[in-house]
Design a protein around this nucleic acid. Sequence first.
DNA 1: GTGACGTTATGACGTTGGTCATAGTAGCGG
DNA 2: CCGCTACTATGACCAACGTCATAACGTCAC
Lengths: 219, 219
Amino acid sequence: MTEGRDGGRGPRERMVFSTAQLIRRDGVGATGMRDVAAHAGAPRGSLQHYFPGGKEQLVNEAVAWAGRYAGRRVARFVAALAEPTPSALFAAMVRQWTDEYEAAGAVGGCPVAAATVDHASCGPSTREAAAAAFAAWRRPVAGALADMGVPAARAEPLATLMISSLEGAILMARAEGGADPLTTVARELAPLLDAALPPHHPPHPTPDRSPDHDGTPHP
Amino acid sequence: MTEGRDGGRGPRERMVFSTAQLIRRDGVGATGMRDVAAHAGAPRGSLQHYFPGGKEQLVNEAVAWAGRYAGRRVARFVAALAEPTPSALFAAMVRQWTDEYEAAGAVGGCPVAAATVDHASCGPSTREAAAAAFAAWRRPVAGALADMGVPAARAEPLATLMISSLEGAILMARAEGGADPLTTVARELAPLLDAALPPHHPPHPTPDRSPDHDGTPHP
DNA sequence: GTGACGTTATGACGTTGGTCATAGTAGCGG
DNA sequence: CCGCTACTATGACCAACGTCATAACGTCAC
């Protein structure tokens, strides 16, 4: 899939983007600097020019980019929801992955998860970058829940639960080679999420699918 | 086979065990065969003798062992529960990790997750091994839920949700360096899990069991 | 033009990985 | 003693990695 928005930017952004793509598919340790340069169509020398901190800096920036991307994506999901319920938001987040897995197979996961697991392949700063990325992802989710009417005290915990379940389901889906765990988690978690709304909210069963194709590939 | 050389556990099992331990801390790619031999106190030559399939076979056996271990652990948790409710089982599963993280820091995650993410560091057979490990873990969880009174149709999906949430929370906990996501997920998911029980939940006679301690560290 | 600078391009070095090949050691039946 | 088998131990290879060093190619200022 060619995405229109990566070629226009400079080579530096392309390399960060390619790093995230390769990391989420192959892991941190298995992603070489040469692979990144080749995937980004950039010269190898540019790596050490733009990222004098070496692989660690490159991975950290890729993780940070993935966190920002996930946060922007959540805002986009919320804006596109016909029924602004927590379960509909979660369903949209999950559908992003089921669509990809059913289209291109369950290769590739979350780059932040890969960076977290491959902890030894990079320095301790990557752990902080992963924490920041999760925070940048959780914050808009919690904000969206609060906007929907979820009590402020429960918005953050529920966002943590949503992201945890999604990440774990991505893991199991990759292992099983199918998207079943993702759909299962979305279905089972839905009633709990909507139950966090104040009582006078009418329970609307299913969200209708709204088109959200911005052409940007997964982080 | 020669048994009884080292207290009943041969060097082969030690190597599989060490592989799981190193993988769950450093990832697959960053775990070298030499490291495994050193950690297991075994000679390097024994690796190629016991695992002619190389690193892939070693990793696969470690993943399979981790799956069996998790399954056995679930059975032990169920036996030790004072109140056999789904939320209590989930709390026990989560507490296994919070205890470790609060005692020794949030280094180390699930070896099955590491093998799933580091997909490129090993062949496709590792993916199947990870799927089998997840299944070996999910089956006893679903069985325990069914025994507690959860309808059979919901036992498997709920087990998938429990394991997904746990795996994702482990991920976030490692990234943040604390056990908070784990406790949050356990608390937020509890009402949904217990709501799957039939209206009058019958208090089962608790099978008294000594606290779990088999001397085996985490997988 | 000339120089400087940001970038691109490539070769080389040192390390580390997994695997292979080959010794070496213990136990045991003859 | 010998030969056999299971296991231990170690050195050698090749490939790949990240990094460094250096040179060439732009494009502006002057």
